[in-house]
Nucleic acid binder design. Structure first.
Length: 290
DNA sequence: GCGACAG
DNA sequence: ATCTTGTCGC
């Protein structure tokens, strides 16, 4: 595979200090502006896929463009085929019976175009490094790159499960993967690693957002710098409260554009569709492996 | 020493 | 992340 920055690819034998130094290099190589960013309207997902009867089949653009099906009956359009490709990435873990620690990662990549799935890919990789807060990319980065390698489609945007710029050295998983491949990427986390939301996130309506600003834990940014957003992607009218998402730039997008993209990719559920589908695909691959 | 921390 | 039933509310 052609890594954009093979020089920034981590060596498995790095010490913790060396990993942190590499993250500072990766953050320096990352761009958090919209010069190459996508238009949220171009990637919007209108309707959520139903997962009740399993994952939807991948659409075959080539056949649809040739008019293989009944005339006019196809839901795919030429515009869909030309739309940017958004790839959601997520992982599941395999633990051997009797063991307490997972020994392999299942990385799933699901490509969407015009709101529907065009390709599923996955890779199962032995795990070497344990989970350490701040160093997640060294555990999950290579497995994710392995899954992306098996994708035929070239991603225009990666949606990663975890932080991007919301990170101690502004180099979370989404930034790590985005920079190594030099592809625009966003990070979507279900909890906050570091930084401080401008406003309390308690009981907010759907669509609400507030900037997350760097605090003292972020060692590479001036305190107060906007590094991402808390975003209420879903909320119930009554009672039960849904926690917000924490969205941050990975690479080649601003904090503002990152949330706009994620908002456009949400279709009624808490998680954006690419992430939701990648999660389900990873679970399916895992289940078929046990 | 304690806190605090994506998946 | 993973181990898991029911249960509450849409």
């Amino acid at each position: 595979m052609d890594l954009a920055r093979p020089d920034l690819r981590p060596d498995p034998s790095l010490s913790r200090d060396e990993m942190e130094a590499l993250q500072r290099e990766i953050a320096a190589a990352a761009t958090f502006d919209d010069e190459h960013a996508l238009d949220p309207a171009a990637v919007a997902v209108e309707e959520a896929a139903s997962l009740a009867d399993g994952l939807p089949p991948a659409r075959d653009d080539a056949q649809e463009q040739l008019g293989t099906g009944a005339a006019g009956a196809s839901t795919g359009t030429a515009a869909d085929a030309d739309a940017p490709t958004v790839v959601g990435v997520d992982q599941a873990f395999l633990t051997d019976r009797g063991e307490d620690r997972p020994d392999a990662a299942v990385s799933a990549a699901v490509a969407l175009r015009g709101g529907s799935v065009v390709e599923y890919a996955s890779a199962t990789t032995p795990l070497s490094i344990p989970y350490i807060p701040g160093l997640l990319a060294f555990r999950e980065g290579e497995p994710i790159l392995a899954a992306l390698d098996t994708l035929d489609t070239e991603p225009d945007l990666l949606v990663c499960d975890g932080s991007g710029r919301i990170h101690f050295r502004e180099a979370g998983l989404a930034t790590h993967v985005g920079v190594l491949r030099d592809v625009p990427s966003v990070g979507v986390a279900k909890s906050l690693l570091c930084g401080e939301p401008d406003e309390s996130t308690a009981e907010r309506p759907e669509g609400w957002r507030t900037p997350v600003r760097a605090d003292d834990a972020v060692t590479t940014a001036e305190p107060g710098t906007a590094i991402g957003h808390a975003f209420q992607s879903r909320q119930y009218p009554n009672s039960r409260r849904v926690n917000p998402l924490y969205v941050s730039p990975g690479h080649r997008v601003s904090a503002e554009r990152a949330v706009d993209l994620v908002e456009a990719l949400c279709a009624g559920y808490k998680l954006p569709e690419p992430t939701r589908l990648a999660d389900a695909h990873a679970e399916r691959v895992k289940r078929n492996a046990e």
